[in-house]
C-alpha cells in the first residue's frame, strides 16, 4: 500500500446534467446523479445509492473521520491515521483483494475534510437531513434543489468533564432548540436535585441523561457527556440503521440503556461475517479491535458508547502489542 500523503486540494467542477458539482481529489472523482453516486478510481468504478452515501459521508465528516475505519459499505470507506486519512475501494474486501482491483490513497486529513464537507454541502438538497432518521426527513433524490447547510453543519456536543458543570456543555432544553423526540415522549424530564453547601458552589453536578438523550435531534451521532481520564461516555440516540460499518482500531463498548439494537459484525480485513449481537435494555458488549460493526435499531433507542481516547492506541492495537479483546476468560 502506498502510504505517501497527498496534500493537494480538491477541485470542484460544475456538471450541468443534474446541477451537482463533480469533486476530484487525488486519483478519486465523485459524481452524483438523481439516485446514485459514482466514484471513479484508477482501477474501476464504485456505485452506491446517494442517500446511503450521504448519510455515511455525514458521519465521516462530523466525526473528523472517527476512530479507525469508516466503511460506507463493504467496499468504500476511509481509515483515520490521525493527521492523514486513507480513502479506499475494496482494500478490506476479500473479493476485490483477490481480483487485484482494490485501491487506496492517503490524504492530508484537512484537505480531505475540505473536499468531503464541500461535497456534502453541495449534494445535500433542501429538505433532506443526512443525520435524521428516514421517517423524520425528506428525500435525498432528484436534481439539485437548494441545500441544507444547517443540518450538514450540525455540531455534536463534546463535554470536557461533565455535562452541566461550570464552563462545560449545557443541558438540552426547549429554549436551546432541543425538543423531546416523538419516540421518547414517555421519558421523564425531571432533573436531579443538587443541594450544595455554602463554600462548595459549582462542585456538585448532576443531570438527567435519559432526558438529555430524549432530546437528541440526530441519530447515530455520539456526543460526549462525561470524561474520566481518557475514558469518554459517548451517549447517542439510534433509529433505523447505522449508515456506516465502523471498523475498530481499538476496543469500544456498548451499553444498551433502552430498547434494542442488533449489531451485524464482520471481519475488519475481509468483510466476512462473524456474528450477530442482539442487545436489549441493560445489555453490555465489547466490540473487539479487529472487527467492523453496523447497528439496526427498529425503534429509537438510547445507547451509551464508551470510548478510550488515549492517544496512540491505534498503533498499539495495530502492531499487536495489545490484544484485540478487552479481557479473556
Amino acid at each position: 500500500m502506498n502510504t505517501a500523503i497527498n496534500y493537494d486540494a480538491h477541485r470542484a467542477t460544475p456538471d450541468a446534467r443534474y446541477g451537482y458539482q463533480v469533486f476530484t481529489i487525488g486519483s478519486f472523482s465523485f459524481t452524483r446523479d438523481e439516485y446514485f453516486v459514482r466514484v471513479s478510481y484508477p482501477k474501476g468504478t464504485y456505485v452506491s445509492d446517494v442517500g446511503l452515501f450521504l448519510r455515511a459521508m455525514m458521519r465521516d465528516v462530523a466525526w473528523g473521520f472517527f476512530y479507525g475505519w469508516v466503511n460506507f459499505d463493504d467496499v468504500f470507506g476511509t481509515v483515520n491515521h490521525y493527521g492523514s486519512v486513507d480513502v479506499f475501494v475494496g482494500s478490506y474486501n476479500a473479493g476485490y483483494q483477490s481480483a487485484g482491483t482494490d485501491f487506496c490513497e492517503r490524504f492530508d486529513a484537512n484537505k480531505l475534510y475540505d473536499c468531503f464537507h464541500a461535497l456534502l454541502s453541495d449534494w445535500t438538497n433542501e429538505g433532506f437531513d443526512p443525520f435524521a432518521a428516514p421517517l423524520e426527513t425528506g428525500s435525498p433524490y432528484g436534481s439539485k434543489h437548494g441545500n441544507n447547510d444547517a443540518a450538514v453543519n450540525f455540531q455534536r456536543e463534546l463535554a470536557e468533564r461533565f455535562v452541566g458543570s461550570p464552563g462545560d456543555t449545557e443541558l438540552r432544553t426547549d429554549a436551546r432548540g432541543f425538543t423531546v423526540n416523538r419516540q421518547f415522549a414517555d421519558v421523564p424530564q425531571d432533573e436531579p436535585e443538587v443541594h450544595t453547601e455554602p463554600g462548595f458552589e459549582g462542585q456538585l453536578s448532576a443531570f438527567n441523561l435519559f432526558a438529555y438523550l430524549s432530546r437528541s435531534p440526530v441519530t447515530w451521532n455520539p456526543s460526549i457527556a462525561s470524561v474520566v481520564g481518557q475514558s469518554a461516555y459517548c451517549p447517542t440516540s439510534e433509529e433505523h440503521m447505522l449508515p456506516i460499518l465502523h471498523g475498530n482500531d481499538r476496543v469500544e463498548w456498548f451499553i444498551q440503556l433502552s430498547d434494542e439494537i442488533t449489531w451485524q459484525v464482520a471481519d475488519k480485513a475481509t468483510a466476512a461475517p462473524r456474528a450477530m449481537i442482539t442487545m436489549k435494555a441493560g445489555d453490555i458488549a465489547a466490540m473487539p479491535a479487529d472487527i467492523s460493526h453496523r447497528g439496526f435499531s427498529p425503534k429509537r433507542s438510547m445507547l451509551l458508547v464508551w470510548e478510550n481516547m488515549t492517544p496512540g492506541l491505534e498503533e498499539r492495537y495495530g502492531s499487536g502489542e495489545l490484544a484485540p479483546t478487552a479481557a479473556e476468560f
Binding site: P188, P192, H195, T196, E197, L204, S205
Partner: peptide, 17 residues
C-alpha cells in the same frame, strides 16, 4: 466539611468529584 448531596432517580447521572 459537608459539601452537600444530590438526589437521583432512574436515568440521572452525577459527577463524583
Amino acid at each position: 466539611a459537608n459539601m452537600g448531596h444530590v438526589r437521583l432517580a432512574r436515568g440521572h447521572m452525577a459527577l463524583l468529584p
